[in-house]
Write a protein that binds this DNA or RNA. Structure first.
Lengths: 192, 192
DNA sequence: TTTATATATATAATTTTTTACATATATTCT
DNA sequence: AGAATATATGTAAAAAATTATATATATAAA
């Protein structure tokens, strides 16, 4: 089984979910589209790691609510204790940063300002999510045995990372402005 | 063209490189194996975004040194100014954290201690890289027009992130220890 | 009234990525 | 002597991920 499968099992341990809901919950720690989630759920069900029941709805399409089985739980627990693979990060923005010296200063600034803007939105959103969790579950959330503990830890980490990204962007923008002053006040432009 | 192609072009703007070297340099901002790099370089060469020359070596296998063309440079510059796609993060460790409440405290602690350990190594390594860059290129490195500027920015960002990850892990380990004390001093264990 | 958005599931086609296979030279470690 | 590691390039097969297509209900907005 692949990592995404374990992610799904982990979410189903927290609570039974539909494929639609799982796809949304996934966002914090593993990117995947619904076109990956639905077939994998079917496979998981075939191998008896999960079960599902049809739930009819009015005003909305019917859904399948998946639950994890004992077999699934055991598989997950065994996997957790194993050393995880190295993280994969692929961020187009970073490729652009790498080559930022090829653009003009306005293009560069715009890129970083847009980054700040999208990350500020993320921070706002994340803070709300954390607040909601803290209100809903109280102090138990910091308790190791709470089913929400892991999710809470991830949210806290994400928030920090998002805030750090903004700080870094501001630092870069400062550097860009400083370099500007230098080239205006001194003749000695380039070295190297 | 895909993002990896632009990453290669960006690295070739900094300096001509072999496919082997490119695969290593890639590490900071885009994960890719050599089996992706070599065919893509061939494609890039076919479309005249890069050229290469054979370099014979003694004691080592011969290599191909790739350089970017004007056509390649223009393509890259045009791409940089466009709004980047959302970052992709896939980290198995985070899936395990999500389900950490399913394990025992020792397994949990071990996971986080191992994470700290691998990230401490990364921090050490990263600091050396940054020091080397600063020594090699001096202050010009903070200059917008330096070909090393983007790479320098990325290294600084990575270092922060790696340091932050360690801080977060320690915070989690603290939480785990606190919860331990609680369950020893108070009877009221769970709520929710 | 049309359009967009949200809920809900599913498959097909394509692209991207990983793993494995393959070869070759030289050095260092056990 | 044999094994592992580093340098160097490539291809083939398999797995994973993205994009596109498809269907269906309901609400809200333009």
């Amino acid at each position: 089984m692949n990592a995404l499968g374990y992610a799904l099992l982990g979410m189903l341990m927290r609570k039974p979910c539909s494929g639609y809901e799982l796809t949304q919950l996934l966002e914090v720690f593993w990117r995947a589209k619904h076109s990956q989630v639905y077939p994998l759920l079917a496979k998981l069900e075939q191998e008896q790691y999960v079960t599902f029941e049809h739930v009819e709805q009015t005003g909305k399409p019917d859904k399948k609510i998946y639950s994890i089985t004992d077999k699934g739980k055991k598989l997950l627990q065994k996997w957790i204790a194993q050393t995880p693979a190295a993280p994969v990060i692929r961020d187009e923005f970073l490729i652009k940063v790498y080559s930022i010296w090829l653009t003009d200063k306005n293009t560069a600034k715009k890129l970083f300002w847009e980054r700040i803007s999208t990350f500020e939105e993320k921070v706002t959103h994340r803070k709300e999510e954390i607040k909601k969790m803290e209100e809903e579950y109280g102090e138990t959330i910091t308790n190791f045995t709470s089913r929400h503990f892991g999710r809470y830890l991830l949210f806290k980490r994400k928030l920090r990372q998002e805030e750090e990204e903004i700080i870094w962007c501001r630092w870069v923008l400062d550097l860009l402005d400083k370099a500007n002053e230098d080239s205006e006040t001194s003749i000695e432009g380039k070295r190297e």
